[in-house]
Computed example of a mutant assay.
Amino acid sequence: MHYTGTIWRPPYEASSLLIEVTAGCTHHKCKFCTLYDDLPFKFKMSPLEDIETDLAEVRSELSAWHSQPVNRVYLTGANPFVLKFERLKEIADMIHKYLPECQTIGCFARVTDIARKTDDELKALYELGYDGITIGVETGDGEILEFMNKGYPPEEIVTQSHRLDTVSIKYNYFYLTGISGAGRGKIGALATAKVFNQTHPQIIGSSMLTIYPNSELFAELQAGNWFEETELEKLEELKTLIGNLDIPVYFATLGASNALFVEGQLPKDKAAMVTHLEYLCNTQDESDLRHYRTHLKQL
């Protein structure tokens, strides 16, 4: 199998077959991100020959071991959805050739990747099996989206999510608790809730900001241009976000960046989740949570 560098996938894609179709990120400008710093290049597309070889290997292994059918394929890389429609179609056709039992194809996507597709292309991609894509929106705080170089305003999150809704492509969000910085956590959470309440994600996965020395954000922190929230502020921010979400969605703190786990189905579990977070805010020790953050070697 062809894999390059560290392979990142959402926790809920653990049972999906991972196929590399890109490596790296086309944007690679977010100040907080260090996920693809181990690569010697910014972005590359996998040759179709490599993708076909990997799919043929999977097919052979499935046949040899009489394994369970592959119902879902997850394309790896920071944002495979950036690929042109024709390329994504070729990949889907190849997947269905070798894995005819495959029902859906997922991947990471940037908001701007969706914007580059026409409505007809999005509809065709859904018909090819693309569904349940994961978008790292991070926040709905427009000031911070600009500061962090995300490359789009919060209004685009709503616009492009609506376009996915129109063609029935389901999507998930990742939110980055702590991204708004010291004193702005609640402001960012309220702004994000306002944006998210206009959309229909299936899952909202919350990561917690961890700043590494090789990030551009670390330099901004050292220069005094941005200040980090305390760990307890981050919990307050999370409580504010959940408390102001009015959409039906599964919400969970996902990944190693979270020292504490919170999950539930909104709106059913909202009150219990807010109460639990209030309890954590009142009982957790800042120094213990900070020790976890500073000793987290990688996400």
Rank of each mutant, 00 (worst) to 15 (best):
T112G: 05
S15A: 15
A115C: 09
V70L: 05
E121P: 12
G77E: 09
F41W: 04
G106T: 12
E57S: 14
Y36N: 14
C107A: 05
R59I: 00
Y36R: 13
A56K: 15
A124Q: 15
R116T: 10
L125F: 13
I105T: 07
P80A: 03
H66A: 11
F32A: 08
F41I: 04
Y36G: 08
L48Y: 11
A124I: 10
A109N: 03
K84H: 15
E127I: 14
E121N: 09
V111I: 07
P40Y: 04
K123W: 01
V21R: 02
T76Y: 12
T76E: 09
H28V: 00
M94S: 14
K97E: 06
P100E: 10
T53V: 00
S67K: 13
R72H: 13
P40C: 11
R110Y: 03
V111F: 04
N71L: 14
F32Q: 07
A115H: 10
S67L: 13
M94P: 00
E90N: 14
Q103R: 14
K44C: 06
A78D: 10
Q68T: 07
C102L: 02
Y12D: 15
I114C: 03
Q68G: 03
D93N: 15
I114W: 02
K44F: 04
W65A: 15
A109E: 01
K89S: 06
D119F: 07
T112H: 05
S15C: 12
L75G: 11
L18H: 08
C107V: 05
A124T: 15
E86Y: 08
V21G: 02
M94I: 13
Q103I: 12
A14D: 07
Y36T: 08
I105R: 04
D120A: 15
Y126F: 13
R59D: 01
N71A: 12
S67N: 07
A23M: 03
E13P: 07
Y74V: 14
T22Y: 00
E52N: 05
E57F: 12
G24Y: 05
R59L: 01
E20F: 01
D37L: 09
C25W: 01
A124G: 07
F85A: 08
C107S: 09
L35Y: 13
F85I: 06
K123E: 11
K97F: 04
A78Y: 04
D113E: 12
A92N: 06
K123T: 09
L125E: 11
G106S: 14
Y12W: 15
Q68D: 11
W65N: 15
L48K: 05
A109S: 10
C102E: 02
